[in-house]
Amino acid sequence: MTTQPIETHAPAERADIAAFLASHLNGRTAEELSTEFHQLLDAVRAHGKKGQLVITVVVDPPANGVDSAPMPIGVESAVKAPKPTPVKSLYFLDHDGNPVREDPRQMSIEFRTAPATDTFKDA
C-alpha cells in the first residue's frame, strides 16, 4: 500500500491593518489620522468630555467584476470632538411671552446721578 503525501497549505499571511494605514497614500493617511487624533485628545483634555475618532476603510469591488482588476481602497475618518458648553444668560418672560432681562413683576427704581465734587474731606 502506498501513501500519498498530504498536501498542506500554509494559511495565507494576512495584511496587518496598522501597516496598511501607515503605508496608504505614501503615509499621508497616517499623518492625517495622527493629526486628527491629537486634535481630539486636546479637545477632550480642554473640555473634560468624551470624544470619538471613527476610521472607516472603504473597499470597492474590482472594475467590471474582473478578478484580476485592482480594488480601490480608501480610508475615511470622522472626528467627533467635544465642544465647550455654551454660556447661558438668565431671562424673564414678559406678559406677551417675550424674553426680557429685567423681571417684569419687579418694581423699577429710578436712579439719579450723584453730583460730582472736587473737594475732599480731611480725616
Rank of each mutant, 00 (worst) to 15 (best):
M1A: 13
T3A: 10
Q4N: 14
Q4P: 08
P5S: 10
I6A: 12
I6N: 08
E7F: 09
E7M: 12
T8P: 04
H9A: 15
H9P: 09
A10L: 13
A12I: 14
A12Q: 10
E13F: 08
R14C: 12
A15R: 14
I17H: 12
A18N: 14
A18P: 03
A18S: 13
A18F: 15
F20G: 07
F20C: 05
F20R: 03
A22K: 13
A22P: 08
H24A: 15
L25M: 15
L25I: 11
N26E: 15
N26T: 12
G27N: 05
T29V: 15
A30D: 14
E31Q: 11
E31A: 15
E32W: 09
E36D: 15
L40V: 00
L40C: 01
L41C: 13
L41N: 09
D42P: 01
V44A: 12
V44S: 07
A46Y: 00
H47T: 05
G48I: 02
K50I: 12
Q52R: 15
L53W: 00
L53D: 02
V54A: 15
T56M: 06
T56E: 08
D60V: 03
P62M: 00
A63L: 06
G65T: 00
A69V: 02
P70S: 07
P70H: 04
P72Y: 00
P72R: 09
E76N: 05
E76G: 01
E76F: 06
S77L: 01
A78K: 12
V79I: 02
V79C: 02
V79K: 02
K80L: 08
K80M: 09
A81F: 00
P82W: 00
V87K: 14
V87A: 13
K88D: 07
F92D: 04
L93M: 11
H95V: 09
D96W: 08
D96K: 14
G97K: 02
N98D: 10
P99N: 07
P99F: 04
P99A: 05
V100Q: 03
V100E: 01
R101S: 13
E102R: 13
D103E: 06
D103A: 06
D103F: 01
Q106M: 10
I109H: 04
I109Q: 07
E110V: 10
E110L: 12
R112A: 12
P115S: 09
T117F: 02
T117P: 00
D118C: 02
D118F: 04
F120Y: 13
D122R: 07
A123C: 01
A123M: 02
